[in-house]
Amino acid sequence: MKVIDTLTGKKHLVDILPVDMADFKILTKDRYFFDWNLEKKQEVHKLLIKGSKDILGLVSIERIPQEWRIHIRLLTVSKENKGSEKKYDRIVGCFIAFIAKMAIREFGELACVSLKSKSEIAQHYMDKYAMRLTGMTLSIEVPEIIDLINFYDND
């Protein structure tokens, strides 16, 4: 999976790795928008450009095997990757595709990735990631989840 440098258009391969306990010391609210210390007991992953140590984004998830589902609890990009001046594009897409791969690997044709979204941004996730809205929950399943994985994984 790759992120794109918005200035040069250059694509960079990324690693998505589990967050170490030591990482939490540098996950400040100022740079990563949320209090990530509250997620210490959850499964948290970080996104880095291959070979770099700078964390460009974070996601925490909950695996719900009895529902063949992985729920995104909290997701963010780093401060410099927010908004129209962002340095790298596709961080969120890479995270969703990464979790989608996890879900397909575990649950096959029953796989589902979900997140709870405010109504004002739900449409964005429906348009960009082909998610569906049920109640307050956005989700992506087969067949759309396969297209999403192929889009981000094969680039």
Binding site: F33, F34, H71, I72, R73, L74, L75, T76, V77, N81, K82, G83, S84, K86, I91, V92, L115, K116, S117, E120, I121, H124, K128
Partner: peptide, 19 residues
Amino acid sequence: MTEDNNLMMDVEYGIDSRY
């Protein structure tokens, strides 16, 4: 950039999806 595009760029910075 249109107002819509600005909104789109901003919605992706973070999601607090905890119930």
